[in-house]
Each structure stands twice: as structure tokens, then as C-alpha cells.
Amino acid sequence: MGFKLLSKLLVYLTASIMAIASPLAFSVDSSGEYPTVSEIPVGEVRLYQIADGVWSHIATQSFDGAVYPSNGLIVRDGDELLLIDTAWGAKNTAALLAEIEKQIGLPVTRAVSTHFHDDRVGGVDVLRAAGVATYASPSTRRLAEVEGNEIPTHSLEGLSSSGDAVRFGPVELFYPGAAHSTDNLIVYVPSASVLYGGCAIYELSRTSAGNVADADLAEWPTSIERIQQHYPEAQFVIPGHGLPGGLDLLKHTTNVVKAHTNRSVVE
């Protein structure tokens, strides 16, 4: 069995187990497998329904001669939608809004960016022009300005110390501490036991640490421990890039980060 097929099978099995364990909360999309990078042309966006009122959005972007996937989250909030992270750029984010209108038909009224990198804030200006209120932590807003990236308009308070959590509509926002970046936030959907790890969490097929220019490698494993301790009931975990899975993604990420750190020390 090929690795790609095995990865998709694991996603399907995880979703099936969740649907059985929580039949009222989960209505997993039966329309197909989780979209992969090879299936999404740059400039297009796919939506994948995880649970009743919960979707991931998947886009792709060219970077350094390669094409990478990027995940975000959409959560229903009454007759409105909360968006977590842009679709990595203005063109993708405009396509995301169009796809949401086509498939869901509810307005996106608020959006949260989970850290300051372009795959999370690139497209904020498109959201703002569409009347979406954009939010991020003060740290993310400051770092985005320093980096020359787009800056969300509103500040999220109460997320300055490791372990801080605040309720934001249908989700809980959690600051686990520094990891992929010093400002990275985690998003949890309690009604569906869905954990969105953003770039602080890796997919299972990833074996290298990737972009760690703004990471705190020493603190990252401790931050992941905080996530595990705060959300032990999480059933569906979405990484910032690639295929979702279960809580095993947290341990896998820790292993990859520690291996990278150990290699760096040896070198």
C-alpha cells in the first residue's frame, strides 16, 4: 500500500471513529477524501466538511520552486461564519470567499490569524475590503508590521502568557507558548472536538522541520505538551499544512522538532 493511500485511509478511519463516538456532533463529509496538494491548482481553494458547521479550507501556493498546501478553518456561528487564517495570499483568499459563498452561503463576518507569517495573514486586506472584521493577538499584529505583512485590524486580548485561553464565538483560542513562531495560536472547536494546530503542528508525513527561522526550538516541545494537557479530548487535529489526523500529530511534531534540534547540535 502506497504512503499517500495509507495517509488518506488514516484520515478516513479517524473521521469514521469520530462519527461513531459522537453521532450528534459529527456529520463528516462523505463526498470524498481530504484534498491534497496535487489536486488543488494554485489560485483555487477546496472546502472539506469535518463536522456539522465545521470545515477546513485548503489552498496551495508556490514557494521556492515548489507547491505547498495550506489549511485553515471555518466555523459556523449562528447565521454567520468565523474564518481562521487566510488562504495564503490575496488571490487565494478572494477564491476562498467565493467558494464559501458557493458552498455554504453564509457571510464571513470575523477572521482570526493564528500567527504573523504570510500563509496566515496574506489576504487580510481582501477580507477587510469584503467587510470582514480581522483579528490577531497584539504580538501577531506587531510582528506582521515588522515583517511588512498585512496586519489584522483588531487585537485579541488575554493571550499574552503561555497557557492563556479565551473564548471567541464558537471557538476557544489558546496560546501554548512559542513553537513554530513566538505568537502562534491554537484554535479548538469544543462542539466538535476539532483542534486546529496551525503551523505549530505537523502532518504525519512530514519528517523535516522546514521553516524554523522564527521558531523557538527549545520551547516548542513544552508548548505541545500544554496543548495535549489542555485538549486531551480532541479527536480531529488539523495541521497548518497537509493531512489531518488525531492527537498523534502532536507527538510526531515533537519528535521531528527534537530530531532537528539534535542534528543542529551535532553539526
Rank of each mutant, 00 (worst) to 15 (best):
M1T: 03
M1L: 03
K4F: 03
L5F: 14
L5A: 07
L6R: 11
S7Q: 04
K8C: 06
L9S: 10
L10Y: 12
V11N: 15
V11L: 06
Y12L: 10
T14A: 11
A15M: 06
I17G: 04
S22H: 05
F26Q: 12
S27R: 06
V28D: 11
E33S: 07
E33W: 11
E33G: 09
Y34K: 15
P35M: 10
S38K: 08
S38A: 10
E39M: 06
I40Q: 07
I40F: 12
V42E: 13
E44D: 07
R46C: 07
Y48D: 09
Q49W: 09
Q49M: 08
I50V: 07
I50F: 15
A51Q: 08
A51W: 08
D52K: 13
D52N: 08
G53N: 05
V54L: 05
V54Q: 02
W55H: 06
W55V: 03
S56G: 06
I58P: 02
Q61E: 07
S62I: 08
S62H: 08
D64S: 06
A66L: 07
A66S: 05
V67Q: 10
P69M: 11
P69C: 06
P69E: 05
S70G: 04
G72K: 01
G72E: 01
L73V: 06
I74S: 03
I74M: 06
I74W: 01
D79S: 15
L82R: 02
T86P: 02
T86C: 15
T86L: 02
A87W: 00
G89T: 14
A90V: 13
A90D: 15
K91F: 10
K91A: 13
K91Y: 11
N92C: 03
T93M: 04
A94K: 13
A95V: 11
L97W: 04
A98L: 11
E99N: 15
G105A: 08
G105W: 10
G105P: 09
V108K: 02
T109W: 15
T109N: 15
R110K: 15
R110C: 04
T114W: 01
H115E: 00
D119E: 02
D119K: 01
D119I: 01
D119L: 00
V121M: 04
G123I: 02
G123S: 02
V124F: 02
R128L: 04
A129Q: 11
G131D: 10
Y135M: 06
A136S: 08
S139R: 09
S139Y: 06
T140V: 02
T140G: 02
L143S: 13
A144P: 03
V146F: 09
G148F: 12
N149T: 05
N149G: 09
I151A: 08
P152N: 04
T153L: 09
S155M: 10
S155R: 08
L156H: 02
G158T: 14
G158P: 15
G163V: 13
G163D: 13
D164L: 14
D164Y: 15
A165S: 14
V166S: 07
G169Y: 15
G169S: 05
P170H: 07
V171R: 02
V171L: 06
E172Y: 07
L173V: 15
L173T: 03
P176R: 02
G177D: 03
A178L: 11
S181F: 00
T182Y: 04
T182E: 10
N184S: 03
I186Y: 03
V187T: 05
V189T: 07
V189F: 12
S191Y: 12
S191F: 06
S193G: 08
S193W: 07
V194W: 01
L195D: 01
L195Y: 01
Y196I: 02
G198T: 03
C199D: 03
C199W: 01
A200R: 03
I201F: 05
T207P: 11
S208H: 12
S208T: 09
S208N: 05
A209M: 14
A209G: 12
A209R: 07
G210W: 03
N211M: 13
N211A: 09
V212Q: 13
A213M: 06
D214G: 12
D214P: 15
D214V: 13
D216T: 10
L217Q: 08
E219G: 10
E219Y: 04
W220P: 00
W220S: 00
S223E: 02
I224L: 13
I224Q: 01
I224V: 10
R226V: 12
I227N: 02
Q229D: 15
H230L: 07
H230K: 06
V237K: 01
I238C: 10
P239L: 02
G240K: 02
G240D: 03
H241P: 00
G242T: 02
L243C: 14
P244Y: 14
G246F: 10
L247V: 10
L249M: 07
L249H: 00
L250N: 00
H252Q: 15
H252K: 12
T253V: 00
T254V: 09
T254M: 07
N255T: 11
V256Q: 05
V256A: 14
V257H: 14
K258R: 09
A259I: 07
A259D: 15
A259P: 09
N262L: 06
N262W: 10
N262F: 05
R263Y: 15
S264R: 12
V265E: 14
E267T: 15
